[in-house]
Amino acid sequence: MRYLEPLLVAVGVCGIFGLWEAMVAGGIINARIAPPPSTIAPMLVELLGRANVIRSLGVTLYEVAVAFLISVPVGFFIGFTLAEMPGLGAVFRPVVNFLFGVPKSIFLPIFILIFGVGIEQKIAFGVFTTVFVLILGGISAVESVPRELVTVARAYGANRLQVVREIYLPAMAPVLLESARLGMIFNITAVLLAEIYGARDGIGYRIAGWGESLQMPQLYAALAIVATLAIAVNELLQQLETRLGAWRQRPA
């Protein structure tokens, strides 16, 4: 049974590609708009062999990674602070909530004014978008810590540091990882959006270029690459989350 599911997925995907191929051949789909998989696949291989494409991918990955590495500590720290300091939380939590709901893309022109169109702007915009997810994640992580367990630890002589290490961290870990994963999705979206909107390099910049010049095989091949990378990152974080949160499973 365990091997059946991936097998079914593989069959499904092959089916879709087959259908796609057939529909292009039959003239139902316009090959100019959606070139068949048999055209995209060789293009994908070709793109991965081009030095400038690889460099662009590297630029994007670098921006995504740096934005994430800044967002995680900053977001969680702000989240913990707002959760642990009721006065501060009362003032700033509504603000964070409002800002979380505002589409960040409307701020892109401002980011270009401040940071230009280079790597810094992509990182800044990535952080700006991601940090709200992590602030909210940090707050709910603190709130997910059962107070009774803190009492238990104190009754058994735990000091402040031990309460943090033995109770807070393990209790918060699954929630933190979950919001980190969610934040990563926002982060990738933000960096690509910023690259497509205005950049000198990065895979989003390439995608925008191929799109504008109607180079459809290149565009689709790039979409496949980005999608694969995003799925891989997401799966990795999900695996980690499942492993660290195994204790959360309810009895069957």
């Binding site: 009492t151 009754a155 033995e166 393990p170 959360r248």
Partner: peptide, 12 residues
């Protein structure tokens, strides 16, 4: 001290 709820640490 033994509490009303067992209050075990669920990850241990």
């Amino acid at each position: 001290m033994i509490f009303q709820e067992a209050n075990l640490l669920p990850w241990l």
